[in-house]
Design a protein around this nucleic acid. Sequence first.
DNA 1: GTTTAGCACTTTTAAAAAATGAGTGCTAAT
DNA 2: ATTAGCACTCATTTTTTAAAAGTGCTAAAC
Lengths: 338, 338
Amino acid sequence: MKESDFMNSRQQELLKLIIEIYIKTVKPVGSKSLVKKMKCSSATIRNDMAYLESLEYLEKTHTSSGRVPSEKGYKYYVDFLMKPKELTGDDVLKLQTILNNKELVVSDAILKCMEIVSEITNYTSVVLGKDSSNHLLKQVSIIPIDDNKVVAVVVTNTGHVENKQTLVPSNISVNEIVKSCEIINKNLIGTKLSEISVKLEYEVKPIIATKIKQYEEVMNFFQEAFNDFTVKQSDIFFSGKTNILKQPEYNEPDKIKGIISKLENVDLVKRIETDQEGINIYIGEENKFDDNVTVVKTSYKINDEEGTMAIIGPKRMEYDKVVMLLNYIKNYLERDKE
Amino acid sequence: MKESDFMNSRQQELLKLIIEIYIKTVKPVGSKSLVKKMKCSSATIRNDMAYLESLEYLEKTHTSSGRVPSEKGYKYYVDFLMKPKELTGDDVLKLQTILNNKELVVSDAILKCMEIVSEITNYTSVVLGKDSSNHLLKQVSIIPIDDNKVVAVVVTNTGHVENKQTLVPSNISVNEIVKSCEIINKNLIGTKLSEISVKLEYEVKPIIATKIKQYEEVMNFFQEAFNDFTVKQSDIFFSGKTNILKQPEYNEPDKIKGIISKLENVDLVKRIETDQEGINIYIGEENKFDDNVTVVKTSYKINDEEGTMAIIGPKRMEYDKVVMLLNYIKNYLERDKE
DNA sequence: GTTTAGCACTTTTAAAAAATGAGTGCTAAT
DNA sequence: ATTAGCACTCATTTTTTAAAAGTGCTAAAC
């Protein structure tokens, strides 16, 4: 906050009020409509509004329109003006039911919670599993399906499972692959997925070379399979993908198509991944996903499972509610862990 | 076709022409614009148009508008008027590249082909894996992740893999589960997934009862896991989900939101599953998915892998192209199989 | 008996004009 | 420092007008 950005308390309150009204109504806020709540005349409010606009916390949609919050305005709001919002008993109950269900694996619980959040808020939620390349290999299995088809299944220390069907090149036998698989298991369990490729080459290959004739081909087979597993990895779970379309800002074909294609774009969605501690709010141009939305996100790390949970909504978001919901889930999970 | 639906050859040609023009232009077709191609006066065309309208092959958007095909019109077109369309060399090449790639498992090849089709046509493609309940169990594995968490992995004879992380109830040990798993493998490999539940109860349970103390709990564990696998199963693969939005009919917020939510609705999409042989065209109200689209679908069955591949596009679809594309893929796959 | 020219009539679409209204900025008084 | 009052701006809505596209029907032509 610059020195020159000083606001007296009435101006702060005015800003808060305008933002909260705009969040509800999605219409530019005029001075007259604020008279009762501000206990001063519309002229005074107009003066303050003009001042807030000069500081770039507010904007006009045209010369004689009411005021609309700017991104800077929203930012000031979430940083300094917003009061934590009590969750309703109903909302808490819904989350509790999931979080108390001891049969649920944590990652499933997170998914279900974010489903609920999406439902409550009418925004879109997304959970991103962290890139599994630093997970550790727990087990590889090769399951022969028929003469020349096998399924390779990899399980990591986080319980993550990947699989791939492959045709076995005609110059190697399924049997050789199965045998090699055993050797890999003996030698590479506990290895980081990202290091498997190198270890396959320098540690496993020499061993297999002594036991299997076609060792070059077999190693190629495994290299390719593992490569797929580490690259593939796109654990993206959406909930309420179309919820955000219910927001009144999505009232034009182009806007709708725009946001939808972004949500379908895996690479773009992955950019939402957290890089910071705590609950972070990225408004408009601050986020790397879409200038017209706000992304509220936070990381989770429970034992070995890591990732990001995020809410995507309009810049005009019910920040207080969203933050409290994420907070609640995050706290519960982290408390539980101890 | 009813007796009274008689059209002379000029009328048939007119209908064909109007439909093909409308497919390209998306604008009602007027009589004057057809004079050159029909080699008769606009008055004659108007007369024929009125007749075709009386037979309900054409419609007007308002009293003095040009004509637009009705669903019945499209239907007559695909059944009797449409000529097979040669695929372009370019399109064939793209598909060939995929289909000739001998390293690709068939199901992956289908997915990639449908991706291409979606790209070529700008419609949305979807591949539905058939309900796996009549697949046969190839292998179950239990992989312990930590003291109370395991991953259960099921592989079927089709190479299909499902997995589920579960917390092990505190009153049974991971070890007991692993042991039981071995027993299940010995006894149930080759069993239809849909019959596993019953066999678990009547064949496996008695065996396990003799070896494991907490057999009731262990059996519950497996029942639940298998139940999940058979129910879960929603192999839906979209390609170009947003492609259909490029079609000019999707120029209004409500239409866009409508189709998008339908595409997100798993239950609705599943209704696309084929029930007939050959390539089938379901226009508008004929399909169970959305009155405003046409679904062109066909089943595939390669060895044990079965499913449906479908194209979703506007009723004003380039039927000839879509049919030829699907035909090409289907023939290639079925020829290959022999 | 078909086909066609011609014309009155209908409806959509676009553009222009007019009326309404919400809301501001500024001045001068409190 | 606050407020009442008023002129002015711009978006929105309604009305008017004009132009274009296209039909249906009648009566003549083939």
